[in-house]
Design a protein around this nucleic acid. Structure first.
Lengths: 217, 217
DNA sequence: TACTCTAAAGAACATATGTTCTACAATTTT
DNA sequence: AAAATTGTAGAACATATGTTCTTTAGAGTA
């Protein structure tokens, strides 16, 4: 199905072209070449296509990548804002929390990623995911198999949920984080459970929990 | 939300290639050329890329259009589509579970929606969302403010998580559902908690839990 | 009319890019 | 060990494709 949009300030020919590009792209999964446009829009020459594409680009309807075959990118007004978040490892009670680095940070190289809509991680940089292993995070209301999205931050504000590594206990955990009078209070998400009071030197904050995603069935 | 699966039966190199193709496509709006793949995946020759692409095509991971520049089309399983899920109300212990109807079903009219990528709710019809109010669902590892995605189903399979309304108790709850010898067993997601045994006549299954999304900070 | 500007034709060109071939290394199978 | 299969390298080739140039036609304007 092709959705035709009415565009302002452009000729019928240009309107035809932009609709053709969109339809082609939706149907085939890659953009049309200049000559595809020529035949698809019954144009007489590649230069006519080029001429009109230049105008459309200047008006902001699309972006062309120079010298790239089929390098037409629609500036999509109904663009889906999505982000590929690399899942760099698993988090489990007895294992160190994987820390993002240049290697696993590369989304294109990462074998495992989760794609989320932008509003889940709005405006935030340094987001990565961990797959939860085991049921040790139940006090954080997080189950085996859940995916936790973390943000790589230097500082945690009081009350935020953090992924912390307890050095002497050699344990990873997810807790609400509070600094209080020379010590750190770690509070389970389930408020009815008792907090943990720890020596700050024993705590390594590895990230801030931004979201949790659980898929069932 | 798209979760990239570990692909079976293909080499790490092929896995890297397919991820690269998808990332490239998502980011730039058009597919990569063979030589883009060569440099992006640190391959040594175009023929290596070609060789592996042929295998990936044979295995159905992508489709190549012969003699077409950048004519790589990702198979549907890799395509990312988004869905707007209407959030038709809240779910709380003491309140009836809102039931979808023609009115609140209309995504365009619904005041509140959540946008998710297709494979979180893959192939499923009748998906709607409820915002969790209160902390009564903690035994399901679900917190105040979480969003629960439900599917409007007639039948629940044993072991699936269901949103049920307990008539005489006038209570909504989320539990794993089992029918057993003339009664219904409702098991909290936290397996260490005790199950509930209920007369089937007292149970109204309102929906099947498909996913849980928790946003923090 | 003459001038300007926009749009179109068609051809020619440069190169980006898919394809293929041969040789060889690495791995697995016999 | 020998053979077969699988994967890698590099180059060469054919062509798909973006770019540019010149010429021409129409439309509006002074």
């Amino acid at each position: 199905m092709t959705i035709k949009v009415k565009y302002k300030g452009i000729s019928p020919k240009q309107q035809k072209i932009i609709n053709y590009v969109r339809a082609f792209w939706l149907e085939r999964g890659y953009p049309p070449s200049i000559r595809d446009i020529v035949s698809g829009c019954s144009l007489s020459s590649t230069s006519v296509a080029d001429y009109n594409l230049k105008i459309l680009e200047k008006m902001g309807y699309l972006h062309r990548h120079r010298e790239v075959s089929r390098g037409i990118e629609l500036t999509d007004r109904n663009a889906v804002h999505k982000r590929n978040i690399p899942i760099i490892g698993t988090i489990a009670a007895g294992e160190p929390i994987p820390v993002p680095n240049d290697d696993n940070w590369d989304v294109t190289a990462s074998s495992d990623t989760i794609e989320v809509t932008e509003d889940l991680v709005r405006n935030k940089d340094g987001i990565y995911g961990l797959r939860v292993k085991g049921s040790s995070m139940m006090d954080a209301l997080i189950n085996d198999g859940d995916i936790v999205l973390l943000q790589n931050v230097k500082q945690i504000e009081n009350g935020e949920m953090a992924a912390v590594w307890l050095k002497s206990e050699m344990e990873a955990t997810l807790k609400k984080f509070y600094t209080e009078a020379g010590e750190v209070r770690l509070q389970p998400a389930n408020n009815q459970m008792k907090p943990l009071f720890i020596d700050p030197a024993n705590v390594e904050v590895q990230g801030k929990v931004v979201a949790v995603i659980r898929r069932l069935s």
